[in-house]
Structures are given as structure tokens and as C-alpha cells.
Design a protein around this nucleic acid. Structure first.
Lengths: 129, 129
DNA sequence: CTGTTTCTACGAAACTCTTCGTTGACATTA
DNA sequence: TAATGTCAACGAAGAGTTTCGTAGAAACAG
């Protein structure tokens, strides 16, 4: 059952996923602590969200111990790709070029980043041949 | 008062904005017709959304005629940039490179698109000097 | 063993989002 | 003018989101 049919995470859910991606499998307490500074998230709030996310299939819960351990089902890259594809359709009419343009101009990418992206484009052009 | 403080449009609101961007100032009927095919949106639904969007400041209403005419407050590019910046922070930790990478690989950009993007990067590198 | 802390579970409150039925005003036309 | 159609306004329903209070079980400290 179906990594591909995962729902789009909400804002609060995405914040939790980011912690899980960074830390790896974590307890509610650990996620709460990580989110408390930037978001002021309380313990029961994080717990409830993570329970909902378990129902949705966004995270997996290991409850073999009293303190349950949660981990993200989809890797960061998968979810990011889903979100980008979604935004692409909803806001850009599918034009990847327009999206990239806005991405590069909104936050000034560093010189190094630009070089990286250029390299990526070179590779894609080769493959496209 | 504050184009810059416009709230992030919801999914349904964004669909309406896209119609307004494409058609220019439009009536509820026109927006409904445009959205009915792809979304099955009913008249009162579109009306209600557009009234809410007026309250939020996303659209402007000209009610000098009996049939009101709505127009988007922010240009497509502004809103798109806002959405990209938002996604960048929420999902990519601010790494434009990662976002561009996912954008280019998720939907295969065409050869022409890649060339356009390369041109853009060239320009940005010049400016960065 | 008793009191304290830590955890999960549950439910509810407040809010937003989306949809649509109904109503009354206005316009068109027959 | 009477019937018909179009419009904005309003309210409410239903779902989803986010937050948190409370309760009970488990672990732990004295």
C-alpha cells in the first residue's frame, strides 16, 4: 500500500517530516523539542499530528517500546518532488521553466549553486539527445 | 496596506486567480464557466470564493455595474514568486538548488526550456560578478 | 509502596476551506 | 405587467487542520 498515493502533507505535517528527515526515526518528545523553538509546538500537538500522519500513511510508528518511534515513509526527495510537481500544475500551468525562473530570482542563488544547476542542465541535455 | 502582505492563496483560490490572470478582469459567471470544465465549480461556489478573496485583498471588485467585475490584485509573477519562496522555506530549507533540481527532474523539461534556463543562469552569473 | 514524571489516547474547541441551497433584488422578454 | 432568468448576499453544512486539556497507564525515585 502505496507510497505513491500519499496525501500532500499540510504545513504542520511538513514541519514534522523535516525533523524526521533530518534526525531519522524519532520520538514525539524529540520532534517536539526540535519544533518548539521555531514553531512553539506543544507536546500533545505534535503527538496528535503524528498520530494523524500515521493514519494517513505519511509516517510509520514502531510501538514495540513504550515510547513509540516514528519515521517518515517517503524520503525527502520524493515528497519534495511531489510538492514541486503539485505547485507546477497548480500555479505554473506545468511550465517548469517559469518555476525555475521564479525560484532562481526569488532567492538569489549563490555562485556555487548556479554552477551546480548548470552542471545539472548539461547532464539533462546529454540525456535528452 | 499591502500587496506584500497578501495571504497565500488556497488551492481553489489559486484556480480562480489563474483564470483572472489569463482572462483579465472577469465576472463570476465568466470565471465559473472557465472553471466548470476542469473543476466542476458551481456558480455560488465561485461567487463565495471570490467574495472571500475580496475580503482577503487577493482580488479587487468593481461593483459600479450590477454585474460585478473582479481582477487579481497581484500579477501572476508576484504570486508565483511568493509561492515558490514559501515552498522553498517550508520544504527545501531554503536551498534553491534542490528545488530547481526537483523541478527539472520531475517534469522533464524540453530541450528549448533547458536552453532558456541556461540563458537565465548565464545572466545571473554575470550580474553576480 | 507512594508520589512524581513521562507517555499514549481521546475528545473537543477554534478555525479554515469548500461547497451549495435559498432568498430577494434586478433585468429581460413576451 | 407578469413570467422567466440572472445576479449578489447570506448562512450553513461538512470536511480538514491545528491546538490543547484531561485522563489513565507505565516507569521511576524516594
Amino acid at each position: 500500500m502505496a507510497k505513491q498515493n500519499l496525501p500532500r502533507p499540510t504545513d504542520a505535517e511538513l514541519a514534522i517530516l523535516r525533523v524526521l528527515w533530518e534526525r531519522g526515526p524519532s520520538t514525539v518528545r524529540e520532534v517536539t523539542d526540535a519544533l518548539h523553538e521555531e514553531r512553539g509546538t506543544g507536546y500533545t500537538t505534535a503527538l496528535k499530528l503524528m498520530q494523524i500522519m500515521t493514519d494517513k500513511g505519511l509516517v510509520l510508528r514502531n510501538d514495540s517500546q513504550r515510547t513509540h518511534v516514528y519515521e517518515a515513509v517517503a524520503a525527502a526527495e520524493e515528497t519534495q518532488q511531489q510538492l514541486v510537481r503539485d505547485l507546477l500544475e497548480r500555479a505554473f500551468g506545468g511550465s517548469a521553466q517559469q518555476l525555475v525562473l521564479q525560484a532562481l530570482s526569488s532567492k538569489k542563488a549563490s555562485r556555487a549553486e548556479l554552477a551546480e544547476i548548470r552542471k545539472l542542465i548539461d547532464e539533462m541535455e546529454k540525456k535528452a539527445k
